[in-house]
């Protein structure tokens, strides 16, 4: 039950993108089209969940016992970068079309601050192993959910008759703001 609370809390109430405002680059950059948005969400899910778990393991069994916690950010970045490389290889092998569609945004998962952010929040919130896993999975599924919603919205926006001054990125940002307000409405759910 505790894990379910944590999970729903991370997906909806403390959504990484719309409430914590982490990972806005792929949120705005890779959401022009629903398929790319879902692909990006799933790739990030893979990286984020694994990096959340791996960084917890490193923190608990390497950094704390050796008393070198000051290397936390460096180590976590190393793990994240390696996982992104791995994901890139896997995507390229499994789905060349997705690999082409994601383009530069795939290696940019490395600099997606949500990935490092979740790993660091795990430490500061003193989550245990399963909590870290649930938190990472929740955060990344929340990210995917938001990417999915926003990708759909932007596909509709592309067809809508938007005033010329708002066309493109401005109306995208306004929509993101409205979506963020809607997600703020989830607070108090758990």
């Amino acid at each position: 039950m505790e894990y379910l609370h944590l999970f729903i809390g991370t997906v909806l109430i403390n959504n990484v993108v719309l409430v914590k405002f982490l990972g806005l680059c792929p949120f705005m950059g890779a959401s022009n089209n629903l398929n790319t948005a879902i692909g990006m969400g799933l790739a990030t899910t893979f990286v984020l969940t694994l990096s959340s778990v791996c960084s917890w393991l490193l923190q608990t069994y390497l950094l704390v016992p050796l008393n070198i916690e000051f290397l936390r950010i460096l180590t976590f970045i190393l793990v994240v970068a390696a996982l992104v490389q791995f994901t890139e290889m896997v995507t390229r092998k499994i789905s060349p079309a997705l690999y082409k569609a994601l383009g530069i945004y795939l290696p940019l998962i490395t600099t997606n601050c949500a990935v490092l952010g979740v790993a660091l929040i795990n430490v500061s919130e003193q989550h245990d192993f399963i909590q870290s896993f649930v938190y990472g999975l929740g955060a990344s599924l929340g990210f995917t959910l938001v990417m999915f919603i926003f990708g759909g919205l932007r596909q509709r926006l592309a067809l809508a008759d938007v005033p010329e001054v708002f066309d493109g990125a401005p109306v995208g940002l306004v929509t993101a703001g409205l979506l963020s307000m809607i997600f703020m409405g989830f607070s108090g759910l758990v």
């Binding site: 390497l62 290397l71 460096l74 180590t75 190393l78 390696a82 290889m89 390229r92 092998k93």
Partner: peptide
């Protein structure tokens, strides 16, 4: 020295793993 060693080992091991992954997942 511990910090240096740990980072070096970590980098080396991750690099080796990636190199093997690259070989298995070669397109």
């Amino acid at each position: 020295y511990i910090a240096l060693g740990v980072l070096t080992l970590l980098g080396l091991s991750i690099g080796t793993l990636l190199a093997y992954a690259d070989r298995f997942l070669a397109v």
